[in-house]
């Protein structure tokens, strides 16, 4: 833990004498209770007491009704043979058996994990490099930060179609290759069974790098200049300062960037639909694109719901695992 964070913790745990920490109630101040020297009974303020959680009830009900109840009903259909219309029968775990016995679904699961971890790994490395490069010194850093963050703001669907044009057989990349005499390297990048997954990964990494960069830049503001300067005076080189001063401070930022990146990467849908629709012949299919196809395009809502449930469990697993592995305080 760094000097700054230690002092902050100490200040929080040892309030100035005679003052209660913010947010902590003294006995006298609790509603409905008498202070030690008071003889007049105060009127119990039940409305205020209950109000603390009653006031949140409409919001809680709304969130449950819109989000959790709807999700729960969707989860129920995972155990049915519903086609999306008409009646249905409960089929138990048959949809899940079909998923795990189907090699194409297993490949979709593998692709899902590949795209999620690949884009997070590459996006975080590039995002960290960009954040370090644009943190100080460079005069045009504000303009460059905006440029590198732009892909996060732009519509993933719109940018995916631009990438699709770029990677088309008649697109700029192949035109460039042909113009420099490398026409033998020209190929339908998004329909080549070996290159399609890597092409999609490039697009996913491009769109996630800016987000990681912003998180790391926020983390870099916590790195104290004086500690870096002290380390430099003590003879630490650039790499040592990065490893022993910068990186420890960035640990929470790494945790946040990776957690959000993996969750986002696992559920990525629109760029893949726009780029390849899961092709060629399922080579870039993910669980999210399979959910859409099964539930809505092919009239197998029960199967699609089962896939969605599998995807939700995987996302939940990795979100919890990531949080546990990267939390800074073991007592959290």
């Amino acid at each position: 833990m760094t000097v700054t964070s230690q002092s902050t913790s100490r200040e929080a745990s040892e309030p100035a004498s005679g003052q209660a920490p913010i947010g902590q109630k003294t006995e006298d101040s609790r509603p409905g209770r008498r202070g030690n020297g008071s003889k007049k009974p105060s009127r119990p303020q039940w409305g205020l007491e209950f109000g603390h959680w009653w006031w949140a009830l409409p919001g809680i009900v709304l969130v449950f009704a819109v989000h959790y109840v709807a999700t729960g009903i969707g989860g129920f259909f995972a155990f049915t043979n519903w086609s999306g219309i008409g009646s249905f029968e409960i089929v138990g775990f048959k949809n899940f058996e079909a998923i795990f016995n189907d090699p194409t679904k297993i490949r979709s699961l593998g692709n899902t994990l590949f795209f999620a971890f690949g884009s997070v790994l590459l996006g975080n490395i590039l995002g960290l490099l960009l954040a370090l490069g644009l943190n100080r010194v460079v005069k045009t850093r504000y303009a460059l930060r905006t440029l590198f963050f732009m892909p996060v703001v732009l519509s993933p669907l719109a940018t995916a179609y631009i990438w699709k044009f770029i990677f088309d057989f008649d697109g700029p990349i192949n035109v460039l290759l042909t113009s420099v005499g490398l026409e033998h390297l020209a190929k339908p990048w998004l329909a080549d069974p070996h290159w399609a997954v890597w092409t999609v990964l490039v697009v996913l990494t491009w769109s996630s790098t800016g987000f990681a960069m912003v998180i790391f830049m926020a983390g870099l503001t916590s790195v104290p200049n004086e500690v870096e300067e002290a380390a430099a005076i003590d003879g630490a080189n650039l790499w040592q300062r990065f490893c022993h001063v910068t990186l420890p401070v960035l640990r929470p930022a790494v945790a946040i960037a990776m957690t959000l990146g993996i969750v986002q990467g696992l559920r990525v849908f629109d760029p893949i639909m726009a780029l390849t629709s899961g092709g060629p012949a399922g080579a870039t299919e993910t669980l999210a694109t399979e959910v859409y196809k099964q539930a809505f395009a092919l009239g197998n809502f029960g199967g699609g719901a089962a896939l969605a449930l599998v995807l939700a469990v995987i996302i939940l697993f990795f979100a919890v695992l990531q949080q546990r592995l990267t939390r800074s305080n073991p007592e959290d």
Binding site: A191, D192, P193, P280, A281, G282, K293, A297, L298, N300
Partner: peptide
């Protein structure tokens, strides 16, 4: 019997063109 059969044919023909299937 259902839409998936035709989808498999269409996807499969693409697989024949790429040599995947």
């Amino acid at each position: 019997s259902n839409a998936s059969v035709y989808d498999e044919l269409g996807t499969g023909v693409q697989g024949l063109l790429t040599g995947q299937q």
